[in-house]
Design a protein around this nucleic acid. Sequence first.
DNA 1: ACCTCCTTCTGTACCGGTACAGTAACCCCG
DNA 2: CGGGGTTACTGTACCGGTACAGAAGGAGGT
Lengths: 385, 385
Amino acid sequence: MKPVRTGLPLSATKPARTGLPLGAAEPGRSYGGPVAARVTLQTIADRVGVSRMTVSNAFSKPDQLSAPLRERILAAAQELGYVGPDPAARALAKGSTGAVGVMFTHSLRFAFTDLVATGFLGAIADELAPTGLSLTLLTSADDGEIVPARDVAMDGALLYSCDWTSRAVDFLHRRRLPLVYVDQDPADDIPSVNVDDRGGARAAARHLLGLGHRRIGLLLSSVRPPYGLRDAPVVAQGHAARQRLRGWLDELGPAAAELITASQDGTGPEQARWGARLLLDRPDRPTAVLCFSDAAAFGVLQVAAELGIDVPGELSVVGFDDNPLAAQVRPGLTTVRQDVAAKGRAAAAALTAAIDRARTGATAPAEHVLLPTELVIRESTGPLT
Amino acid sequence: MKPVRTGLPLSATKPARTGLPLGAAEPGRSYGGPVAARVTLQTIADRVGVSRMTVSNAFSKPDQLSAPLRERILAAAQELGYVGPDPAARALAKGSTGAVGVMFTHSLRFAFTDLVATGFLGAIADELAPTGLSLTLLTSADDGEIVPARDVAMDGALLYSCDWTSRAVDFLHRRRLPLVYVDQDPADDIPSVNVDDRGGARAAARHLLGLGHRRIGLLLSSVRPPYGLRDAPVVAQGHAARQRLRGWLDELGPAAAELITASQDGTGPEQARWGARLLLDRPDRPTAVLCFSDAAAFGVLQVAAELGIDVPGELSVVGFDDNPLAAQVRPGLTTVRQDVAAKGRAAAAALTAAIDRARTGATAPAEHVLLPTELVIRESTGPLT
DNA sequence: ACCTCCTTCTGTACCGGTACAGTAACCCCG
DNA sequence: CGGGGTTACTGTACCGGTACAGAAGGAGGT
């Protein structure tokens, strides 16, 4: 007698299979309902007359059994319509799913509309593909019953443009998942990938100063009253935005009397135009504007055109990111390039490394990658006239 | 005595907890290694002095236990650093993960670069968010050890711009996952979402005929020699491409002697330019071109500009999709609009419906959605001169 | 002939939850 | 004061796999 897992109480056992060729196919203990019962490893095992474990090995560890037997098992599986080990069960038993998450605070739509985000994600997808890991898109929504960050099985996650304080991010941490921060304030024990936002911003500011500009507008993101320029490097939303502002102020001087700031909420085109108006409608209109992103800069270019302000004759505009559109708008946008594809590749590599580390129990210190930025001068900036 | 699941052999049991307040925290049976042992439902149960089931209910079915006890349990969980039921285990026990897949044949990068794809995916993401389902991106890659389509746990999947014959698609079917076809030849038993490609193509062709064009070029996708126009409606890759061609031929007449066809491989900009050259370099250059996508049409516009061919003066160009860029290129591209956002919403809705159906065992017939298309006339088409 | 090693397969004990069918205590009612 | 219905919690039996430690049998060495 050998015990066999069945739907019956444990005391019920089945006589051992002899391994002899079977006649008619056993139709899978059909007390599961009128539909065909679920085919599991056990079904195949019974059919072929081997142990469940051997069938498992046939799929997951081919070198653990003889080739002919494996063939027989695979054939039986095919015949019974068994595709392979159930992913959910395997995930539980092995402790690893084949998927990693990417977390956004913004609506997920942002992940597909913003060219900087899509470039980044595309690179991740490409980099992850050969490892066999799939990419799961996570939102920080935590209102519903289901909170992806807490309830989706995954092997690790990328935190990208996330709200630091969201409950979802907290879940991710508390689950002790291998994480990688992208464009976030680095933490000692968590690998991170960042670009040299501050350095790039400095270059942008120096560029304008070199052209003679002194009344320079700064277009910030999500800095609401009562906060002003002094607090902005702290309260602006997003590590990148804060670093960029810091970089500008490094060069311009934090107290520069002639700095004019405006802040927009969010990253959509409407918000960009709104922020642009705040700067361009003023009587003491700046002669140049530094924008926290290209998307924001596009708003400035557009509003300038509407107001009949010549760029770069009357107004210089500098963006950030080198969005693919930056080279295509007229005039071409001077901007600070970051290599989003490289960022994506680095992030994916850091994540797979972190997952490996967690799996093997290795305790290498967390790596912190800082990618360079580069000022790209196009037609939207010119000398003060 | 009540049996308690421990790491010890089954015969070992533990005396029942009395429910009295506990002294020092039991440090989680630390024979798991030097690091803190994993915190599970049982850990919390032992701590609070209730059954594992009650702890499970505290998280998953709040109305199954009294509020004060639930509070105590949640507090203990918090204290022990327990985030919530393990997603993998829950997936196995409940038979549902919180994620659905979207399958691409193209490199995943395509999912993030093609504006038609991103619009579609963004809409899906938006539509799915309130349901709590996460989106997992799947490739049809099946070379590695891990095949996402077979090895990733999910509740259902969308098949989008897929290679019909790929092994990955087959896996998805054989797993009996709830599926929805998008832009695929509909199958009776599987819900599908399509747009009226054929009708739209007819409108495009009629438009050109009405403008007097007779020598019309057709830019196809992935129709390699030895196949010609006659076979193209069958062999062209992608349901949409085939339907569009059929629609053109409906109006132009399949044997129209003056039709000129060219085919490009793939959907990238280079391929588009290459396909465009095939048409425009000929001595019997067509006076108008119907393209299977806007992306291809952009290639035609670009090459025409390079060759000094005036559009629409010497050449009319019609695209397909109404890619967001179609309105922005010069001259504005006449095209057949499909509402990709609506397609995404419909696909997401169909998938959640299919998943519900599978869950409840309901057997409603599969729905087949067909969304309208609309000819959008811009500046790239004009009368034959 | 005996011992060792390797290959191939098996059995048990998990992975960490949930479903479902109890059971005990309490409440209300006639 | 017994019966019927709640409410609150418990026990058992799974979900469908994998890890790991045997066990059986044959090959090879001495």
